[in-house]
Design a protein around this nucleic acid. Sequence first.
DNA 1: ACTATTCATTACCCATGGGTAATATACGGG
DNA 2: CCCGTATATTACCCATGGGTAATGAATAGT
Lengths: 264, 264
Amino acid sequence: MDAHSPSSSNESPWLPFESRRRARDEKREAVLRTAVALFLEQGYHRATLNDVAKRLNITKPALYNYFRGKDEILYECWSIGNELVDECIAETSAGGGSGLYKLRKLTVRYAELMTADYGKSLVRFDIRDLSEDNRKIVQTAKRRIDRAFRDYIAQGVADGSVKPCDPKLAAFAIAGSLNWIGHWFQPGGELSGRAVAEEFAIRLTEGIAKTTTQTTSTRKTTALEKADKPPRKGNASREETSEHHTRTAARAAGQSKRARSRLR
Amino acid sequence: MDAHSPSSSNESPWLPFESRRRARDEKREAVLRTAVALFLEQGYHRATLNDVAKRLNITKPALYNYFRGKDEILYECWSIGNELVDECIAETSAGGGSGLYKLRKLTVRYAELMTADYGKSLVRFDIRDLSEDNRKIVQTAKRRIDRAFRDYIAQGVADGSVKPCDPKLAAFAIAGSLNWIGHWFQPGGELSGRAVAEEFAIRLTEGIAKTTTQTTSTRKTTALEKADKPPRKGNASREETSEHHTRTAARAAGQSKRARSRLR
DNA sequence: ACTATTCATTACCCATGGGTAATATACGGG
DNA sequence: CCCGTATATTACCCATGGGTAATGAATAGT
């Protein structure tokens, strides 16, 4: 599994340190994966830190090596989900296309996020369980997501791909329906997350689209095929911020910007 | 306020008893009104029974004269909301009309419910906070609501008022959007509950309706005007079950069927 | 080998809050 | 006038669970 055995004594003295740091981050993420799953299946208040620890084969105080407290764990779970959404928005905004095209693209991706744990955490967790500071961050982020939907709709109205409507209410209607997926979707059902996402993307946007899509429900192509401007796909401006851990003595310092690894 | 002063000694010995019972029910409902408001604004777990009592100018143990415990209060709040929904469904099913008409009727009413406290309790409260028995009741009721949406859609597909689609997914999409209203709507905003309901009814059904409604958003007529079969309005089969209190010695017996007074 | 750091454990603290017991007050009926 | 019922209060119990202190076992670096 690990490629760094401590056999060769000198040569690359950084690796042990790096591998330690990596191991630590992996454990941190394991805590979050376990926590988000447990918070979702039992609810934040019913799930105890003992439960989380037990599922990881450790004890409660060990968790405090990685997090300041329960609410910080909650926040970090939410934060991962938020990063995933931010990526969706960034990619959608970066790629071109009509307002309708962007709206559908975001809808598909967002819907699929709602079928996975970290996505669900965005809509199932209660903002009031967070600290004052984190709560403000979350509120701001929520507004940003709402803005994305509204902007795409407004853009679609402007460029003619979307029927004239109130972007605010339309965004509420679409996002609400998507958010609700996070409440009812259970993996293992008859529908895969992807299938639900595709279906919802069509259903939710056909009402306001100028170009009426055929909804025969037996279609097997992607939800985006009919959008009026497929963008050139390829390099989508992968900005890699390469945030570095400044881990010093302070145990479990507030490191809300975790290394951008392939989570989930 | 009360018309029953104890001056005249005999004549109508029932009244004092009746008035006591009425007073009791009013207090019970006052508790529920306060509780639902508090549970919504603070969340069930953060809101304590002391908070509820304090807001009523009483103390915590006094609540136990009316309810067995916190979870029962939660259940009763939910139950009132559920009764309101049941009335909507009953009236909608009783009145005639096409599938689309019924779907829109239910959508409008349900949306408006979501803008009020007892309606919100249907979607904001966590089923896992209830006792085993009550949880089963709630789950059954939720399925019944879902069934209503699906039935109307399927009926619409059958009678040609709704485009062919998967009733299950369409119902999820519509109900999800409506349920989400209970999460974001705050009275006192720029939009009234009724306005939101009307707008959503149009927006959510126009995607699957065969008869495309004009969505100019400057329209001021009701959401139902274009439906293809306005039913004869009038006596809508008011079944009054006339449930009676069997209040005996047992303090706060399980009286999940409260007197059907004008709540809210 | 020696030492410092990391990370986990056991044992504990204690605020919170749902729920109960004992008790006081008001009131209707005989 | 007294009693039973209903309803409220004060004072308390105690299980729960987040969080901490003291401590022990690995491991890296010199």
